[in-house]
Simulated scan of single mutants.
Amino acid sequence: MKNLKKLLLLAALTLSAATAAAQDPETDWANFGRFEAENAALASSPEVVLMGNSITEGWIRLRPGFFAENGYVSRAISGQTTSQMLVRFRADVVELHPRIVVICAGTNDIARNTGRISLEHILDNLQSMVELARANGIRPILCSVPPAGAFGWRPELKPAQDIVRLNGMIRAYADAEGIPYVDYHTPMAAADGSMNADYTKDGVHPTEAGYAVMERILPPVVKRVQAEIGK
């Protein structure tokens, strides 16, 4: 029995060591460093910050003029989940003192980029970002997760219906809380819930044609909020 206990203890210690090795203590898990210099260099508070993942990051890369013309600042990081965004929300949104934050997130949660997470807990993270924004006098805008029928990096997953369900939850929360909701999903989705092939090459990330659709949808919502703030 003693030998069995020793073997179990050794196995537990080995597993613990392996886990610790996999979680490099030098890793910036939330990627605070990504915008640290840019945040410090801001001469004034931005009007609108877009918090998101590669969908938003790709947007400013392909269409920087759209961001400049509308006074939008991106604080989006490719591959990030809502858990990571929530951790850096204070540094990359609150401390910039914008009037508005646009939150577009959830794709990578459904793809399990940082592990399995329920739709309810994804919504919890979004709600926490909203609450942080409101507590600091920042008006939040919530966006739908854009459509996707498959993830190239997680081919075993079938995300289309999970995205539809999550969007329904986000919209219901936004409606209940009086938060503007931006629906990218409806005009960009094919009948099977994937992204319309006219708007994407990989099924997840919009092309310039896809971003053109998004550019028709977001600014009117932002302008309505700006008008309300200006009253």
Rank of each mutant, 00 (worst) to 15 (best):
L10F: 13
L10I: 14
A12N: 04
T14I: 14
S16K: 05
A17K: 12
A18K: 12
T19I: 15
A20Y: 14
A20D: 09
A22C: 13
A22Y: 14
Q23N: 15
D24F: 15
N31V: 05
F35T: 09
A37S: 14
A40W: 02
S45C: 07
P46C: 10
P46N: 14
E47D: 15
V48N: 09
V48R: 06
V49Y: 01
L50Q: 07
L50A: 08
S54N: 07
T56G: 06
T56K: 12
G58N: 12
G58A: 06
I60T: 14
P64A: 13
E69C: 05
N70Q: 11
Y72T: 05
S78E: 03
S78Y: 07
G79F: 07
Q84C: 02
R90K: 12
A91R: 00
A91N: 10
D92H: 00
D92L: 01
E95V: 02
R99E: 13
V101D: 10
V102E: 04
V102A: 06
I103K: 03
I103V: 08
T107P: 06
D109W: 01
D109L: 06
T114I: 06
T114N: 11
G115M: 12
L126K: 02
Q127P: 02
V130L: 06
E131H: 13
A133T: 02
I138E: 00
I138Q: 00
P140I: 02
L142Y: 08
C143M: 10
S144N: 06
S144I: 09
V145M: 07
P146N: 10
A148W: 04
A150M: 15
F151S: 11
